[in-house]
């Protein structure tokens, strides 16, 4: 469904992503794990068209994404819940969610999807008219995911959804991610919390300083001694 081939991304003179290749197949939950600064967020943003790769190709269902502006990439069915949530703090929860639906052709089913998101995150329904900035960190994360879902994505990109959340909330978020996967959404999940990510994922890639250094079945990676030592705390 999504395939990256030899993608390199630079910031000025710094090479943040140094020629990575990977793929995500229809219906899969794939995770990219790795430490801070490994290039994970850059990778996701490059897929979404925020950054341009210097070399390499990114294709989504055979279509090349590298020349498309970000809004057209969203229109193709790729939406993202960004790192740091990036909620529009001055806008209401409703406006935030509606912005997620900016590119939808099928506007008639929007109310239906709003209800679906409120069933996933009831708290958003309670706060529909509150401004995004007044939500707690966990609520903002839910809003970020909900907002990305409002695009009815075929591929959902989740960037560090558990960052900065209390353990209980982390479990909530991952439970929702599993549930989303069951509904058939293809998901690419970037996480520092490798333990959690490997629990829910089908397959995984490990990134380090701009390279993919390991890949494989999530379950087998979780038991890989090196991974255990480096990312799972022994």
């Amino acid at each position: 469904m999504l395939a990256l081939h030899d993608v390199r991304v630079f910031y000025g003179a710094i090479e943040a992503v140094k020629g990575i290749s990977f793929e995500v197949r229809q219906g899969e939950l794939v995770t990219i794990v790795g430490a801070n600064g490994a290039g994970k967020t850059t990778t996701l943003r490059t897929i979404s068209g925020i950054y341009r790769p210097a070399t390499g190709s990114i294709t989504f269902e055979g279509q090349d994404l590298t020349a498309l502006p970000s809004h057209e990439i969203v229109a193709l069915g790729i939406s993202q819940s960004p790192e740091g949530r990036l909620i529009f703090g001055s806008l209401s929860v409703r406006d935030n969610l509606m912005l997620g639906a900016t590119r939808r052709a099928d506007r008639a089913t929007i109310p239906e999807d709003l209800d679906y998101i409120f069933s996933l995150f009831p708290v958003l329904g309670e706060r529909i008219n509150q401004s995004g900035g007044t939500l707690s960190g966990g609520e903002q994360q839910m809003l970020a995911i909900g907002r990305a879902l409002m695009a009815r994505p075929r591929l959902l990109l989740l960037d560090e959804p558990s960052l900065g959340l209390a353990p209980m909330l982390v479990n909530r978020i991952f439970a929702v991610i599993s549930r989303l996967k069951e509904t058939g959404v293809t998901i690419l999940l970037v996480e520092q919390n490798a333990r959690k990510a490997l629990e829910v994922a089908d397959r995984a890639y490990v990134m380090e300083t701009g390279h993919i250094i390991l890949e494989g079945d999530a379950r087998s990676l979780a038991t890989n001694p090196e991974i255990k030592k480096a990312y799972l705390g022994g």
């Binding site: 910031y11 000025g12 943040a16 950054y51 960004p82």
Partner: peptide, 16 residues
């Protein structure tokens, strides 16, 4: 080259 959007990847969310 250094617009907010091109700021290098950093640990914290990018301070726009």
């Amino acid at each position: 080259a250094i617009t907010p959007e091109l700021a290098p990847e950093i640990d914290e969310p990018i301070p726009d």
